[in-house]
């Protein structure tokens, strides 16, 4: 069908083959961008955020972490370190991780390195919570 393109979300532990989709919104490092069929061939770095996939009247979201998108005439591949479908997000785990990171950040005496790690953990868990909270 015209106006559709093939989408795969590839992580180190799993490949989500979305098949033919109409629209994709992905979190680029400089802000979210949308992809429709016929997009210029490109490689885009991705930030932690939400991937939205539209297929007909069905909408799907994923919470994802860093990676990149490879857009070709044959389709789109999102290579991200982790992607969790909206329904598979473990809310309690994300909440716990968020609290842990926050507590860590509150204790000022920590070293810089630890702080960076905690910040990143906080970002990841917050993203999961955000994506899960929608709908």
């Amino acid at each position: 069908m015209a106006g559709q393109f093939h989408l795969e979300i590839i992580t180190p532990t799993k490949v989500y083959d979305e098949g033919e989709v109409d629209y994709l919104r992905a979190p680029g490092v400089d802000g979210a961008f949308g992809v429709l069929a016929g997009h210029t061939e490109s490689i885009m770095a991705l930030a932690i955020g939400e991937i939205k996939v539209v297929k007909g009247s069905v909408e799907k979201t994923y919470a994802s972490t860093k990676g990149f998108a490879e857009i070709t005439h044959n389709g789109v591949q999102l290579l991200v370190e982790s992607a969790e479908p909206h329904d598979d997000i473990d809310l309690t785990r994300a909440q716990e991780a968020f609290n842990r990171a926050k507590e860590h950040l509150n204790r000022k005496q920590d070293e810089m390195e630890d702080e960076l790690r905690a910040l990143r953990a906080q970002e990841r868990s917050l993203n999961r919570l955000k994506v899960a909270a929608k709908k």
């Binding site: 490092v29 061939e41 490109s42 490689i43 885009m44 770095a45 990149f68």
Partner: peptide, 11 residues
Amino acid sequence: DYLFEPSKDEV
């Protein structure tokens, strides 16, 4: 001939 976003370096 890819377009790199934000830039090759950043990617």
